[in-house]
Design a binder for these strands. Structure first.
Lengths: 152, 152
DNA sequence: CTCGGAATGTAGCCTCGGCTACATTGTATG
DNA sequence: CATACAATGTAGCCGAGGCTACATTCCGAG
């Protein structure tokens, strides 16, 4: 989601020669969290449509382990963000932006899982941890992962 | 008692009450997020006390890039969770639980950064991304990272 | 065609992690 | 010693992401 995320102002340049470095690192980690949920939804919706033709709120809720009302509310956010469209009592569909975000997320997920497997992480843990880690993987890190996987 | 030989039960189960989620990987990734902030605070407080003798709310706020009121509120949570103690207008101090959590967090952080560096991630990106990723690294994955780093 | 159950949507409440604005305390200094 | 100022704390607001409870709509059997 990095491409289309509205970047928060974070902070003004401090007068102090202290380290604003750590603050920005924490800040980045934190703001990366905003968007993680949307990324998960978009990826899941894409999955559901590919493998079943439709994405219903109930399925989404079940797959994410949340109440259906929560899923519906978040789908509303997806619509506001221009990532999805949905008419009442019809399924949910991704917009162009949503599809392209889903593709990027899926690609990143695959690289992260592969990297974890490559360094010896058990499959189950790799799949599970990647779900949380992937949202914090920067482009630079992702590129390094890809290079590492392409070695030999 | 020093945390030196406390066989750390490892991981944040201490911080988070487990819920009866039938959820998939998503649920785990999500709940891991809930302790991330506390982990950051505890690690930072530990750092500040080591390298300056005291941890003041203002310093914590500046280092985390948040308003001081936010830091104070979160310190309140730390106290509720039994990770820190603080008397009004005095500094913040970690409890035994807080210290031991800080130690585990710091150790995990180092392993994650080292792993990233080992697979070719640039230093800056490694430090930055690790900040967000580390909170999603399970024990199994952490162990795998350690094994990978110990290989020859 | 009707009707009941499942899916969908709405309303209202909660906590967390931010923020600003304001109030209070501690302390350094004139 | 008084007091200005920085640090600390309090109050109240916001949005995100959860939940439950209730209302509505859709659809497949009869």
């Amino acid at each position: 989601m990095s491409d289309l995320m509205v970047t928060t102002p974070i902070h003004s340049a401090s007068v102090l020669p202290e380290e604003p470095t750590q603050a920005s690192r924490f800040g980045k980690a934190r703001s990366a969290q905003s968007g993680a949920l949307l990324e998960d939804y978009v990826e899941l919706i894409s999955d559901l449509m590919t493998s079943g033709g439709e994405a219903r709120p109930t399925d989404i809720a079940r797959r994410l382990g949340v109440a259906h009302a929560t899923a519906i509310k978040t789908i509303g956010r997806l619509k506001r963000e221009g990532l999805a469209v949905a008419k009442p009592y019809r399924g949910v569909f991704l917009t162009e932006a949503g599809e392209s975000l889903a593709a990027r997320v899926r690609a990143r997920h695959r690289v992260v899982v592969d990297l974890l497997l490559a360094v010896g992480v058990p499959f189950e843990a790799a799949e599970s941890d990647a779900e949380g880690m992937e949202h914090h993987v920067s482009d630079a890190t992702l590129a390094a992962f890809a290079r590492f996987l392409a070695r030999d």
